[in-house]
Design a protein around this nucleic acid. Structure first.
Lengths: 127, 127
DNA sequence: TAGTAACTACGAAATCCTTCGTTGACACAT
DNA sequence: ATGTGTCAACGAAGGATTTCGTAGTTACTA
């Protein structure tokens, strides 16, 4: 099963989320953030982050004794890739069908609805 | 890594898609459909479908010599679950943020845009 | 300087996913 | 009845993912 450019796994995604929200971090900081919600060993996170560096998902700065990791791609890029992937795997390639489902899985606020409307207007005008 | 109610894997999803579009099918039929686009052995598909029956992703009718498989859940249910899952894993739980990304990964037709607008209107009125 | 704490590196185990070869049963046609 | 083809069942291999123990190194502190 060959994946497109390095689709992150579940555990990798958890780490990416920490790095996205907190910015460049040490293994210790990432472990603290994740172990607050889920029991996990320090070396588990360390190993994962080393693998992610090998894969090119994150970039490691080894200047200090505590290496500092940062994401290689912005959250939006990776999220867009994941969405594209799911569209291809489960929605017959139709982004539209995914959107229609997504709008119904969770209550969306009026503000958010209006934000989506604006984006639709933009997309339409871009024709 | 414990998943919620049986998230289908990549290979399983391919099989589900065949069953969704074709309806209840034998292993032979599913294999024919999949091997048309991707080289794969018959027993590979057989094994996967047996596992899926064990997991409860599909239901097997063994009345005939060629067992007939059908999906346990409708496409929409499974798709909604997959979307919900991705929202939780990669979008900090916000369906809205996934939708905003999804609308930009692929060109959407005017008809589709209008269909989304209608759904937004419905959701708003449901308040 | 000796001891403690924190860090990286390494290897290996456990599980899951995907693949397929082999076997034995069954059905059909010669 | 014999051979040919199709089927389910099973086991096992190979790879990916996740987990963590252990070892060795570096920094800090008493």
């Amino acid at each position: 099963m060959r994946h497109e450019p390095n689709r992150p796994t579940d555990a990798e995604l958890q780490i990416l989320e920490v790095l996205w929200s907190t910015g460049p971090s040490t293994v210790r900081e990432v472990h603290d953030a994740i172990s607050a919600r889920r029991e996990t060993g320090y070396t588990t996170i360390l190993k994962l982050m080393q693998i992610m560096a090998d894969k090119g998902l994150v970039i490691r700065d080894t200047d200090q004794r505590s290496h500092v990791y940062r994401t290689k791609r912005k959250a939006e890029q990776t999220q867009k890739q994941l969405v594209k992937d799911l569209i291809g795997r489960a929605f017959g390639g139709s982004a539209n069908r995914l959107v229609l489902q997504a709008l119904q899985v969770q209550k969306i606020s009026t503000d958010e609805i209006n934000a989506i409307r604006e984006l639709l207007d933009d997309l339409e005008n871009k024709e």
